[in-house]
Amino acid sequence: MKDIGHIISEHAFFSDLPERYCKLIGGCGKAEVFEPGQFLFKTGNKATQFFLVRHGQVALELHAPGKDVFRFQTIGHGGIVGWSWLFPPFTYMFDARAIEQTRVVTFDGLCLRGKCEEDHELGYRVIKRFANVMSRRLVETRLQLIDVYGRE
């Protein structure tokens, strides 16, 4: 069976990361399976983890009393779920729920944050990767907002 360090080294999100860092980050990760409907995290929970989706699909959702749940994005194979563990107030802003059986690597954000504080080279590399995910998500969200298909 492959160890977590090996799994992540093959993954685009961690590509080009020196082996020693893959091992280090792998040390904060564990493989998990979420069944359809199961929550990865809920709004307001303390944000201590993030997830690398290996197979399956996770939906990000918002809920309000008396209203249908608003599902606004899905993240599939290869995607990263959760960055609230990186920034104060370290609280999840949305619900994340598996909508099919989903295999992930779950990372302990507290453990990784500690390692990043100790080794700023590692911290820089991690933040750079998350910044890339965030900027993509922002572009995608903008496109989603402008109603691009209504503008043909």
């Binding site: 899905t74 194979h77 909508i99 995608e140």
Partner: peptide, 21 residues
């Protein structure tokens, strides 16, 4: 789809997000 309505269980997000899937 950009906006999911109840009952939709597939992808949500712009079409470019499908490229990596």
């Amino acid at each position: 789809v950009d906006n999911a309505t109840p009952g939709w269980t597939r992808h949500i997000g712009v079409v470019t997000t499908l490229i990596r899937r």
